[in-house]
Design a protein around this nucleic acid. Structure first.
Lengths: 188, 188
DNA sequence: GTCTATAGGCTGATAGAC
DNA sequence: GTCTATCAGCCTATAGAC
């Protein structure tokens, strides 16, 4: 047993990766431990040797998801502001992102449920999101503008997903795409 | 029995009013029919004489909530753009709204769950939201700008509610308040 | 139209074998 | 660490009395 700790950590990440898609797709409270475990290829009993409770799994999932998102944003910091914005619009504000919450950002999928979670969950969330905001601030000039941009995109995705037709979804996405350039171009 | 239809309609509205706060507070899927009925002062069996299913109740609730929201927005159309914006910021983007989802807007509270609901729910949602967007367009000049403003505020409220401290909640609200004036002032 | 009672299934979590 | 088996409680929805 040379790498027991590493293996356990790796398995934890595997479980989170497999369950993350399911939870973002169906919602946290509406997705049962059995379904989560099954998607990860284990039984519900085995889940509890990695996470002490469903809430504990929620915390670990948020940590992982937000770190992943921050890496995505930070990876494009070498580009110009125009290039960065074009990249964001093409990916975040896309019909693909609307249609597939399981492979997308946690914020529009689970944001409201984080708001209903207990304080320890919110604390983990705020801690990890702050890193993302700090990273975005380097690109946009201020934490305030970074926060406003995130709010704009999260709101757009929530609304677009609630729409019944592709046409209506596109209208919501296009509305955000139309205002974002004037938003980020303002050093204010 | 001179007003049976009216009485039944009135009772329906009473049930929706009483259950609306509970559902927006705790989430739709996480709130049971028993709790909803109890908040409305009846039993779960009685609920099914007014709504054929929980999903049917969801539709009726969205209809009611969005009509109420649209009336709130439309009631301020006689004001100047500056006055209107100040009103919106003070009320929608307030700590009070963050802390009390039960008495607030449906969109940040249940938006993600509408996205997971069946097409008939989404159709009702889109139909009623369109009226609100049309109303807002009169004030802001275009449906596109109205949609972007709604996205901005919905995203801000979702994020603010996910924050653990009042300070962090305020930071999110202030970030949106800082960009909204430049957003609506642009006729583009 | 509202009640009580109940069906049938799913929930999060635990105990003990291996 | 993972399994099977199981607990007590909750879920949506329905049946039948009044």
């Amino acid at each position: 047993m040379r790498y027991p700790a590493e293996h356990k950590q790796q398995k934890r990440q595997d479980l989170l990766r497999a369950s993350g898609a399911l939870i973002k797709e169906g919602g946290f409270s509406a997705t049962g431990i059995d379904a989560i475990a099954q998607a990860a290829g284990v039984t519900s009993g085995a889940m509890y040797s990695h996470f002490s409770s469903k809430s504990d799994l929620f915390k670990a999932l948020l940590e992982r998801e937000l770190q992943h998102s921050t890496e995505l944003w930070a990876g494009k910091l070498e580009q110009s502001l125009e290039q960065w914005l074009a990249y964001v619009m093409d990916h975040y504000l896309s019909l693909d992102h609307v249609k597939h919450p399981g492979t997308g950002c946690v914020l529009p999928a689970l944001g409201a449920e984080i708001g209903r979670a207990d304080p320890s969950v919110k604390a983990v969330f705020a801690h990890e999101l702050q890193k993302g905001i700090d990273s975005l601030s380097e690109r946009l000039g201020s934490p305030q503008l970074a926060t406003a941009v995130i709010s704009q995109m999260v709101g757009a995705l929530v609304l677009a997903r609630a729409m019944p037709t592709r046409q209506a979804q596109l209208a919501v996405l296009d509305a955000s795409k139309a205002v974002l350039p004037t938003l980020v171009a303002r050093p204010k």
